[in-house]
Design a protein around this nucleic acid. Structure first.
Lengths: 193, 193
DNA sequence: AACGCTAGAATGAACGTTCTATCTAATGGG
DNA sequence: CCCATTAGATAGAACGTTCATTCTAGCGTT
């Protein structure tokens, strides 16, 4: 997830993510990050200019990584239906594989702590734009209902997010069949008939 | 929203909500709450035992209020389809009317800062149980796909949440026709055919 | 000997909470 | 009707702790 960083930066980012998920941002002190990552505060400030920068860097790294992963599914050759399925499968897969990253983005994408500029860059480098494109295509072909493709993508993402939350909290199972059914629910809701 | 509290408590809860949405929990200090609510810290501690208690009280109050509001829609006499529509309409209406409450619950329902016991009580007093019941009924009648009703409710709630987020961020419109279409998307995805 | 890097103590600000003094309003005996 | 008494409510200073950040001294390579 943090391959582009050096060992120390990686340790700091990984530790910070872990603490934020376990304890909340307000309980994530530099002293605790230093202790758990086994990097002194001196070193942390050698690589990062502030706590805010760590959090924003974390945000950027996760969104970029996830974005590339999901786009692998969207960019394959196939029918609209196939690419739809591959795309959402990737979203589910990455969320299951790195639940902390998923939870972090989910919780802080609307937080004032993340700079607007970082959110904007993350959006552009993420998978939303290509997914919007796919949906627009489906609407041109009269396959999907006529509506704002951005809105429909957001609604489907919401469905997936809440399915994952439900799973991660232990309230529901997450089987392969269940995943296919969830994607089918989204597809069917979007279609004209 | 806070009718069951006295004037001071009401001012504190309202101010706290406003600051948390504007500035994040970690920037919501007691000094700031005192200043903005025009209640001294002495008085705040006369009515609340701690900052944690304020936040958890806030959470309980909003969920209870919203829960009762949505249940008005679900408890009316009508077909499954009608009650489905009324229920989700109420969710959308309350989110539009009190966006701060909506955002707060959305952001902190998975935060470790809210006591597990408070979340549990809130869930039981909220609208999830009756909505689950409605979905279970629709499945018994072979109207909806056969799946875990809790999961489908969560997915639909996710769709609504992300539609509202998209609207509140100014990315999409929210017209009456748009609301009906969103509910239709959910309904159609849930149905067997 | 120089430089990048590290550790951890030091710093001053800000935090949640407590303390003390004062204010307000209700009560009751004369 | 008046004042003494009381208990609750309020304000804001004070407290001890913890915070993000900076500083200083030393480490290991080159």
């Amino acid at each position: 997830m943090f391959e582009q960083y050096n060992k120390v930066q990686k340790a700091v980012l990984e530790t910070t993510l872990s603490i934020i998920i376990r304890k909340e941002l307000q309980a994530t002190s530099m002293a605790l990050i230093a202790k758990e990552s086994k990097v002194s505060t001196g070193s942390i400030y050698h690589y990062f200019s502030s706590k805010e920068e760590i959090i924003n860097e974390l945000y950027t790294a996760i969104v970029t990584y996830n974005g590339q992963f999901v786009q692998e599914g969207l960019n394959r050759e196939g029918t609209i239906r196939e690419r739809f399925t591959w795309g959402w499968e990737k979203v589910i897969e990455i969320s299951r594989q790195y639940p902390e990253g998923f939870q972090f983005i989910e919780q802080y994408s609307f937080s004032p702590y993340i700079y607007e500029e970082v959110k904007q860059k993350a959006y552009n480098g993420g998978w939303c734009a290509p997914m919007n494109g796919l949906y627009a295509e489906a609407m041109e072909q009269k396959l999907f209902k006529e509506m704002d493709p951005k809105l429909l993508v957001q609604m489907h993402y919401g469905s997936i997010v809440y399915m994952m939350k439900s799973y991660l909290q232990g309230n529901t199972e997450l089987t392969d069949a269940g995943i296919q059914q969830a994607i089918e629910v989204c597809w069917q809701g979007a279609c004209r008939e």
